[in-house]
Nucleic acid binder design. Structure first.
Lengths: 78, 78
DNA sequence: CATAGGGTAAGCATATATGTCAACAATTAA
DNA sequence: TTAATTGTTGACATATATGCTTACCCTATG
């Protein structure tokens, strides 16, 4: 039995919230973050709102720009 | 200044190694894992060998099938 | 009122992850 | 040898992430 898509969406949203939380703790705007990791502000917004199923590559790029270990992006309860 | 693609590939490979390590610790074959999370064995192989830039959704599905928290997939040094 | 900053969103193009199927290699066992 | 298990790889189709542009909504500030 496989995981249902509702749970995936919930997880995506929580991941986005966690990203936003870390970004704000660094006092960066979405534009700041986008600029410092060469991603589009549109993409940052999509990720933070759980409207996209982001990739490992993007996670790595973002965590480097935020100066956090990537697993901090997963430091939340579901 | 952005992260270089060599580092991304290195990270992908390490992620794959970590996945393989966890899978083997659970005494599962790639086929076992594929079956238990309804992914293709081809996809599991591609991920474990760092030949693909996998997604959050796939990470979630795999971590559920392995009964580990998703951040365990990132418990490695780069 | 206007302007600026922060964020969201639609639309389209391009790149690529995964599904799917087939083939193949290596290992183990009979 | 043959057969089974495990894993890898190529090719193609489909789905979708991101780049990119434009436009919009708020809020604050002039």
């Amino acid at each position: 039995m496989s995981i249902d898509s509702k749970k995936i969406l919930t997880y995506q949203k929580e991941f986005g919230k966690q990203l936003k939380k870390i970004r704000l703790s660094k006092k960066m705007s979405q534009l700041d973050l986008a600029a410092s990791c060469d991603l589009e502000k549109t993409s940052i917004s999509r990720i933070e709102n759980g409207r996209t199923n982001t990739t490992l590559k993007t996670m790595i790029i973002i965590s480097e720009a935020l100066n956090v270990n990537i697993y901090e992006l997963f430091d939340f309860e579901i």
